[in-house]
Simulated scan of single mutants.
Amino acid sequence: MQKMSSLPRQIAEYAATLPEGAPICPGSLLHLGNRAAVDQALSRLARRGQLIRIFRGVYVRPVVTRFGLLAPTVEKVIAALAALWGETIVPCTGAAANVLGLTTQVPVRLVYLTSGPSRTLRLQALVVQLRHAPRWQLVAPGRPAGLAVRAMAWLGRTEAARGLDVIARRLSPSDLAELAEVRPILPSWIATPVSNLLARG
């Protein structure tokens, strides 16, 4: 009985050593106990509010703030999950368009594009959707060239070329060079306006 009661404490102590947003999975805790015991301990910690279950078999430690225990920031959780799952995960096309000044509307839902399967994450009351996206929408993660591609995807076929003129003013020469490099995997309705822009200098 003592062994079972100590397992949640051991997991909680381990979780306290991790950086904000780091995922806690049963497979990384099997040195502390068998799978059934670890699963039970994780569930118990989640019920107590000491861990947050964000997805099946994935937990994170809440952050202690002056307002109480809160979920870690979405950005840190997404970055940690991308590393854990070996996926590319980037903000959705609407978010890219907002960053680049093409729209003032902020997406109502938190949506990220992923190279992996679609999933729904829950960080306490916050719901985050991961949507599988084609490879071309995931280029240059975390860089302006990638934002440009995703913003043009948001604009669509009829407006992408016109929008690129606005986007280009926010890109440095190195950003434009990276945008040129990813043209081979872009659909023609994005690659062509990029080529025309480069040709104009």
Rank of each mutant, 00 (worst) to 15 (best):
V182Q: 10
R135K: 10
V64E: 11
R61Y: 00
M4I: 14
R183D: 01
L147S: 00
T104A: 12
W85D: 02
V139P: 04
L198S: 03
A22G: 00
R183W: 04
L29P: 08
L42Y: 08
I167P: 02
A148D: 04
V99M: 07
T88Q: 02
A22N: 04
T93D: 13
S188G: 13
R35Y: 15
V194A: 01
L45T: 11
Q40R: 15
A180Q: 08
Q124K: 15
G68V: 11
M4H: 14
M1C: 10
R53A: 13
A125Y: 02
K76I: 00
T103E: 06
K3W: 10
L176K: 15
A83M: 04
R170I: 00
Q40L: 15
I89E: 01
G49M: 06
P187A: 09
T158E: 15
I190E: 01
G49W: 09
G146I: 02
I52R: 09
W189Q: 06
V128I: 15
H132E: 10
A71R: 08
F55P: 00
P184K: 09
G86Y: 09
V128M: 11
A12W: 09
L164T: 04
R35C: 01
L198I: 10
G68N: 12
L113E: 03
R170V: 00
W154S: 07
V108A: 14
A151I: 09
A151K: 07
P144Q: 10
P193G: 03
S195M: 05
A41W: 09
E75T: 13
V38Q: 05
N98T: 04
A97M: 04
V139F: 06
L186H: 07
F67W: 09
L155I: 02
K76S: 08
Y59C: 07
V108S: 12
V99A: 06
